[in-house]
Design a protein around this nucleic acid. Structure first.
Lengths: 347, 347
DNA sequence: GTGAAAGCGCTAACAT
DNA sequence: ATGTTAGCGCTTTCAC
């Protein structure tokens, strides 16, 4: 026999009916132990592997979920992926994973392919330009449950798990104000994107009441296609320094940029931490490993992933209803890159 | 109608038979353009989505592949994942992904679940202790094609894509010898693992002919359960320094460890690059971003992922035959952490 | 060029 | 406690 054995084969071999085999697979207590033993022995001997695809098609819902991310070069998203996978494995779900690279066309293809594969639900970090058209087939009464993470998608009323970016900004702003920074630069982030606006707004709130300002000339955005590489950070800081004087503090959009800023500053003879305070968002592992260690706002990727999974599965269990939105609270991790800094003493 | 529309619904709506709809989906040229248009219009209007699961069950083989990694906190594996995904997307495959965390039990569960889900093939980075028992059902004539990456799995005769670890070690050894290093320490890696043995062996070969040695007391291994965190590196270097004097050069098993070694050295007042040469394997992006930048052996994760995919799909197309083994050639990227170092001048 | 019918491997309702 | 039957959504001969 060259094909894989089926329940029929097992039934035949064990001298029972196919239905009985099916019940044994699910360990039903209608089946006496003696029969189970016999059936299991046949499975073992013939090398039977349950065909979940056929089972799903017949009856119960799919146990597959789709996880669509932009890019896991970004350690933050890598950790989200691992968190979702851990939760899925725990609950006996399987994960279809894909990367859009921030490209709307890839995103559309991936969503389509996951839905064609009958996923029970989707967790999506959308591309910046996502207009929701990739999710058209998912709306309406026969919707595939969808949870967006980090970036809500325009015109798609889905459950969402995000970060309180405003609060993240505020934490950082308050910290920099307390240090005595007077001028703060902001590097990176897609101009007009909600995330950047929220972080900037929060930063301003945190700085309010102190003499600190964020001069317009010191806000340098990128085009949002960032692959979150440190090179982006190096470019951004080069542009900043070209524009004029060095600020007291630099806030970058994500830790990866801060690494590039490190480099860029040193090339100009400026020592991060000592000459200028540097802080960022995401708190990737590297932040604690570079020198000087990097102050960063931690946004609990593990929690975010776990919440996204929880929200998705509860929506699968209980479809419909109004979209829910969960916010993960960030916390500030203060390290050398700001702690070492002090305002220049007026000589 | 609350359920998703099926081919039957489309057929009914378009006034053709189900078989015709099936042919339209695959754009068969037996169907005249006029009919296709009509059918496609119905699909559009009813919001039809092709059910690939049912299609697979009936006829053609599955278009799903399984990718089983230990952990994508490791940027090297993250890049492998992205490479495999890119290739899969290109060829209209879908990816089931899971993380074993180096745990044999999780590995077993994931393999089982992927096979139950009828994947057409598997790409696996096995846990250190994998004995192949997780892959038992896959052997024999009805095998699921399997490609192992980076670490062959004992007793499983599968296609393999690996790195020429010996060569990687040799490149590094030759470089350190040329620098004039006399004592070289090796930190990290699971004692007895092939990968470590190969790298160590290569390192010795590269050093041969020079006065350099690797004292036994300067080889500090770990337990192989490493999550590739920099903390491991910090511990390893602490242990090394406890054992006695500082070597001329330190080679770590992976870049993440080197970051921790950075930290650990500085805590002892030793400056990496200046006081001791430091080099590693993997060449993760961070290697170019820290200070001093880190010399590392690049092992082309993107190439490795692409090769694994190529090997797997060609095995799916042409099952059986003798297992193939592909080796990706590493190359040395020299950066400040070694370039800045010079032997102490005998005063 | 299109339709009718069988069947992939499984589950669930009902029957015994 | 186990068997019978129908059918999930699709593809594939084989008719017409």
């Amino acid at each position: 026999m060259t094909r894989r054995p089926t329940m029929n084969d097992i039934a035949l071999d064990a001298g029972v009916s196919r239905a009985t085999v099916s019940l044994v697979v699910r360990d039903s207590d209608q089946i006496p132990e003696s029969t189970k033993q016999r059936v299991r022995a046949s499975m073992e001997r013939l090398g039977y592997v349950y065909n979940r695809v056929a089972g799903t098609m017949r009856g119960g819902g799919s146990r597959n979920l789709g996880l669509l991310l932009t890019n896991i070069q970004n350690p933050y998203l890598a950790e989200v992926s691992m968190a979702v996978e851990a939760a899925a494995q725990e609950s006996e779900y399987t994960l279809l994973q894909g990367y859009s690279l921030g490209d709307v066309e890839r995103e559309r293809r991936l969503v389509r392919s996951m839905v064609e594969n009958q996923v029970a639900g989707l967790i999506v970090m959308g591309a910046v330009e996502s207009d929701g058209s990739a999710f058209d087939g998912l709306g309406g009464p026969r919707a595939v449950p969808l949870v967006t993470i980090l970036r809500p998608i325009d015109s798609v009323a889905a459950d969402h798990v995000g970060i309180d970016d405003r609060r993240a900004g505020r934490l950082l702003g308050a910290h920099l104000a307390a240090l005595g920074a007077r001028t703060v630069a902001v590097l990176g982030g897609f101009e007009g994107a909600r995330m950047l606006e929220a972080r900037l707004g929060g930063l301003r709130e945190g700085l309010a009441g102190s003499p600190a300002r964020i001069p317009t000339s010191m806000v340098v955005t990128d085009d949002g296609h960032g692959n979150y590489s440190s090179e982006t950070g190096a470019h951004l800081v080069a542009e900043l320094l070209e524009r004029g004087s060095c600020p007291d503090a630099i806030v970058t959009y994500t830790d990866a940029y801060a690494l590039g800023v490190h480099q860029g500053l040193r090339q100009h003879g400026i020592e991060p931490g000592a000459d200028v305070a540097l802080a960022s968002f995401d708190n990737i592992p590297t932040a604690a490993q570079i020198h000087p260690t990097l102050t960063s706002v931690d946004s609990a990727p593990h929690l975010l992933g776990a919440e996204a999974f929880r929200l998705l599965t509860s929506r699968i269990a209980e479809p419909g209803g109004v979209a829910e939105s969960v916010v993960v609270e960030p916390h500030l991790v203060i390290r050398q890159s700001t702690a070492l800094w002090a305002p220049p003493t007026p000589a």
